[in-house]
């Protein structure tokens, strides 16, 4: 890798981890496979500080303003937003289905909590995805170790608190190994 290492600038507030924003959009009519998914992923920026985060975040469209079948991914630098990545292969994700109109606010709450280290689960968080779909939008938060129930419960509780969603909102945990075997994808 010859890419320059991203570092906080002078006077900026460093983050615990560097992160990358990714964007993907499903091409209508194309077969979904792991390789086409990978090809559709576009890295749209890496940041190491709060200020660099806003320089990226403020210049990309809010998820609620996107149309069609689009996803934003925010992952720690070095982790590709794919099940097969070493950081993800034993992991899973919390899935929250959102009524239309909530995506931008919920995504912002989640992203702020993630870069601000609000989850308090060590190195467990891998990244987050907001998936814009026709009927509803889907927020997911990925962690490294799907079988660690103490960690996944803690993530769920923090997620509930920071999203501030109605108490009847359904949250579902899914291991990536299950997603691989049933070939489900949003």
């Amino acid at each position: 890798e010859s890419r320059p290492v991203v570092k906080p600038g002078k006077g900026e507030h460093p983050l615990q981890f560097n992160y990358c924003f990714w964007f993907s959009r499903r091409t209508p009519g194309k077969q979904t496979s792991s390789s086409s998914y990978d090809q559709n992923l576009k890295n749209i920026g890496t940041f190491a500080s709060v200020e660099q985060f806003f320089a990226n975040y403020s210049h990309i469209a809010r998820p609620g303003d996107l149309s069609g079948h689009s996803d934003y991914h925010l992952f720690k630098e070095g982790v590709r937003p794919m099940w097969e990545d070493d950081a993800n292969k034993n992991g899973g994700k919390w899935i929250v289905r959102l009524k239309k109109g909530l995506a931008s606010r919920c995504w912002e709450n989640l992203v702020f909590a993630m870069i601000g280290e609000q989850f308090m689960v060590g190195e467990e968080i891998c990244g987050a995805v907001i998936s814009i779909r026709y009927q509803e939008d889907i927020l997911s938060l990925w962690n490294r170790t799907a079988h660690d129930q103490q960690t996944t419960s803690r993530i769920r509780d923090t997620l509930k608190r920071i999203l501030n969603l109605p108490p009847n909102t359904i949250m579902e945990y899914k291991k990536h190994s299950e997603s691989l075997s049933d070939n489900s994808s949003f």
Binding site: G11, N109, I115, E117
Partner: peptide, 21 residues
């Protein structure tokens, strides 16, 4: 070690900083 934690309200303040543009 120590973790770098930022609360939401602090991030909102940084959003308006000239460095963040």
């Amino acid at each position: 070690g120590t973790r770098i934690v930022y609360e939401r309200h602090f991030l909102m303040q940084c959003r308006n900083s000239p460095l963040a543009k």
